[in-house]
Design a protein around this nucleic acid. Sequence first.
DNA 1: GCTGAAAGGTACGATTC
DNA 2: GAATCGTACCTTTCAGC
Lengths: 153, 153
Amino acid sequence: MSVRIDALDRKILSALQEDASRSLDEIAREVGSSKTPVWNRIRKMREAGVIGQQTVILDPEALGFTACFFVLIRTSEHEADWQEKFLQVLRARPEVLEAHRLAGEIDYILKVRVENARAYDAFYQAMISEVKVFNVTALLSMEEIKSTTMLPL
Amino acid sequence: MSVRIDALDRKILSALQEDASRSLDEIAREVGSSKTPVWNRIRKMREAGVIGQQTVILDPEALGFTACFFVLIRTSEHEADWQEKFLQVLRARPEVLEAHRLAGEIDYILKVRVENARAYDAFYQAMISEVKVFNVTALLSMEEIKSTTMLPL
DNA sequence: GCTGAAAGGTACGATTC
DNA sequence: GAATCGTACCTTTCAGC
């Protein structure tokens, strides 16, 4: 499951994060190695799950997703059953891009991307009808200052 | 700049989001078209910026980024100069994966990925030394329930 | 663990309808 | 707007160092 990641691995990961469309040759040149070793390392890291999904970042605005909310949730329920149900609901809803369970007063935070405020309300109504929550605060994003998936390797 | 996105475009985007490593042939088959039109549409959407960076999702835990914080920031400063400085600071810091300017009482939210709590404190100290903020609340993630970059097309 | 080469597949552009 | 084809390049494997 786990792998030792050395300096060369980190360089490879960094290059892939930046632009996964480049050829092995280019990446090998950039990290100061050659094709085969780079390819073997990538394969191993894929198998180990260090490298996950290969994807493409789309422009949400261009596709009509003009509203982004961060949702702070408090609950009075802390049983395992309730939590399991809640996680299922979150995972099933594609507009929930991120969900974290938190330490402290606020129990959960969600990042929700939708077409507009009405679509958010539809999501909110659907969520509270499926699972009981104590308090919900929605923070509306006015401007996406920064958004990256790149870890600071 | 902007493009009309039709149903076929959406299918293509959806397929690319899911797995950008597949060949044109496979994608064409999946969306019910053939290579050339699919390729032309992808090229146009890339040029228009609808399709952005092609990347790889890495496992943060496997790479030692065990701490994730959501940071709620209030400021007393609302002049353009201050804001410009603040944005520069956020954009320059690679541990800030997301930053949004918000409507309402809380002015900004950040998502910060770091090695551990000590690294977060280093980030926090650095940030407040560079720019004046009124109030900062850090929410510590205990569990990443869900994390995706895929828009619900 | 690295190098080099070889085979099969793939992207991309030109051309044609 | 879509199919066919050709070339250059790219991925993947494997034998030898």
